[in-house]
């Protein structure tokens, strides 16, 4: 696990910054809830009259005046986007950074197979995403307890599980892309995560674009739908997991044979 340890050490600063930023924003949102709860009737009415945007963010199905409804939307925006960007950044750079920084000449000339290098790097990405989500989960639940609200365990657990799986899927797709890249990758990772996010918004706005939710990892973590049905959409989740598996498979097929020039 030498490479896992090395990668975790290398990514420590980025991990701490992203985790602190997401935890801070999510905590702030939760601490604002008691203050906003009193004004929620007006806010819910305003959100309900925003046309397509209401549907895009699932606000037509949720009651913004409850912690569950409020958290589902805030969680979607903060943890959803923040987590997706973090996962994309971690994974899209993980293989190609060796070529970009010319460290491939160091790493790949040691007696370690490329398959093992890839596997350890992938494990390091999964560990970072898992750690970020555990910390965020603890901060969220702790913040809810701190404001004296009853914690909607089932909904919170489902929402966090969905966002965790979504981040893993984005990471898997970006890992696949990383195997094919030689140079800069950050723009590609962030762009892809944003594209996935907007695809899910479009899928929510109009039924004719509903198929898009099968093409984006955000498709199975629509907070409104999770809170509404009390479960993750199995078909969309399966499509997402298949897309992630495809990304990893592409990486394992290509990278071991890749010419490192």
């Amino acid at each position: 696990m030498t490479i896992v340890k090395h990668e975790l050490r290398q990514g420590k600063t980025a991990f701490l910054i992203w985790t602190a930023a997401i935890a801070f924003l999510l905590g702030i949102c939760i601490f604002l809830f008691p203050e906003m709860k009193g004004d929620m009737d007006g806010i819910s009415e305003m959100f309900a009259s925003m046309g397509s945007f209401t549907a895009a963010f699932g606000m037509d199905k949720l009651n913004f005046g409850t912690l569950t409804g409020y958290y589902a939307i805030e969680c979607g925006n903060v943890l959803g986007l923040g987590g997706a960007f973090f996962a994309a950044l971690c994974a899209v750079d993980i293989l190609c950074k060796e070529e970009r920084g010319h460290t491939a000449d160091f790493l790949l000339t040691h007696p370690v197979s490329r398959i093992r290098i890839m596997t350890e790097k992938l494990i390091s990405v999964v560990l970072r995403i898992t750690a970020l989500n555990l910390i965020i989960y603890a901060v969220s639940v702790g913040s809810m307890a701190a404001i004296g609200e009853e914690i909607p365990w089932k909904e919170v657990n489902l929402l966090h599980l969905a966002y965790y799986l979504m981040q893993l899927e984005i990471a898997a797709v970006c890992f696949g892309i990383s195997a094919f890249l030689k140079r800069g990758s950050v723009g590609i990772g962030l762009g892809l995560a944003a594209l996935f996010y907007f695809m899910s918004l479009i899928a929510n706005i109009t039924e004719s674009a509903g198929f898009l939710k099968y093409c984006t990892p955000f498709g199975f973590c629509d907070g409104a739908s999770i809170v509404d049905t009390g479960k993750l959409d199995g078909a969309v989740l399966a499509a997402g997991l298949a897309l992630g598996a495809l990304g990893i498979l592409a990486a394992y097929l290509h990278y071991p044979k890749k010419d490192i020039t």
Binding site: Q10, G101, D105, F106
Partner: peptide
């Protein structure tokens, strides 16, 4: 192996 330009990881 010693490459012509020895580069290592930042930090």
């Amino acid at each position: 192996y010693l490459p012509s330009e020895a580069l290592f990881y930042p930090g």
